[in-house]
Design a protein around this nucleic acid. Structure first.
Lengths: 220, 220
DNA sequence: ATGTGACTCAGTATAACTAACTAGTTAATA
DNA sequence: TATTAACTAGTTAGTTATACTGAGTCACAT
């Protein structure tokens, strides 16, 4: 079994000391570099091509998010594990978008950090349980919110209205819709007007948003 | 500390035997009912109002998904923990939509099932690590797919255009946007026109869809 | 220094949409 | 049977959006 080559970056010397101690305590890891800011981390990645880069988010010169983006673009073989105190959804999401392979909170136990490094080195993704919880709850909230009875579109709009709304959200004009449905333009406009009155909406843009929010159109 | 009243439902007698043994082994639980199908489970929930209903998905008469929906609607105080062998995303998502509070795989360890029951009894949600993994990976995939370089909005639209597009997708008219940004209507219209040309889009509806697709507006 | 892209603004013409009405037909239902 | 909701269609008026052409300023890079 090959050793896992590790680089870590954090602007606090104390954290670096801790990480150094941590990774030296286990022979399966080999530290190939330490950096105190994002730019330095990049240079060391370039030089040593580690298997895993353990990055803090807030660092001088180049923060962890930007560093991650660059690493994932230039050196895709180097996995990125974020080690941070931030547990809010936005940060986490930004990191996922940047391409981070794992996300571990700083107060995690030794074993959790090891697990994280091993997992990302092994091409898996890894998130601290508390981070997973935040993500899952966001996911569940999003999955569920379209299912509340009050917001159920079918109780508010008639079948014909929904049919028309689908076409509107697809970008068809009233004229085109009238041709598709063999109706007069007046009728389509009536449906538009009625829907808008019901929904307290006053423009096409909001109608489209409403349609998308209620899964009337799928976004391929 | 009050005992957690438990009902479980599974169409296999062997599984029921196992669950009975399991929950009897710990005095914090008290079994108030056992069912071999969904309908029976419903009747027992009605009768005993358990804190937690542990349900299998595939059961005769009424499956776990439908049973969950009914329980969550009629007896919201009863938490539902799904215990199943299915680990695919669709099943999991269906269960979340149905309102399940937790989801544990059948080959989980004793402790995990206990943890699950305790968590849902405690108003938290709970998912087996392997289930969490499936969900998280789905989430990450979804989060990332809007980030492919070809479809990256920031390479196509300028900052000002994106700013304007956000407002458009929020349902503001050009006039309103011009007032917000202290610009003339002509300018806003120019931005609209330029965006449409770039994106080969010819109506507001499609612009709004494009904005949403690219996460320019969040749908609360 | 020249060109390019981003941003700004104007004007004209046409198309599309919004608002506020009226009103007839049909189907379900109390 | 009378009522209601849904669907249909229309008028009138005003507003907003789309499609053009044209043009000036600014910053930045070749």
């Amino acid at each position: 079994m090959k050793k896992i080559k590790i680089l870590f970056a954090d602007d606090h010397a104390i954290v670096r000391d801790g990480l150094r101690l941590l990774f030296k305590s286990d022979p399966q890891f080999s530290i190939v570099g330490e950096a105190s800011n994002g730019e330095e981390a990049l240079q060391l990645v370039e030089k040593h091509r580690p298997n895993v880069a353990v990055l803090d988010i807030s660092m001088p010169k180049l923060n962890g998010i930007e560093a991650t983006k660059i690493i994932k673009e230039k050196y895709p073989l180097t996995k990125v594990l974020i080690l941070t105190i931030h547990e809010n959804e936005e940060y986490i999401q930004q990191m996922i978008l940047a391409g981070a392979d794992g996300y571990v909170v700083k107060n995690a136990e030794k074993k959790e950090i090891f697990d994280g490094v091993r997992a990302v080195a092994n091409n898996e993704s890894f998130f601290s349980p508390s981070v997973s919880k935040v993500l899952l709850e966001a996911l569940i909230k999003r999955t569920r919110k379209n299912d509340e009875p009050e917001s159920n579109i079918y109780n508010k709009l008639t079948r014909r209205e929904i049919e028309v709304l689908r076409f509107i959200a697809d970008g068809l004009t009233s004229k085109e819709i009238s041709q598709k449905l063999f109706l007069s333009i007046s009728t389509i406009n009536s449906h538009r007007t009625n829907m808008m009155k019901k929904l307290d909406i006053h423009d096409t843009a909001s109608l489209v948003r409403y349609a998308i929010q209620n899964n009337l159109v799928q976004m391929k």
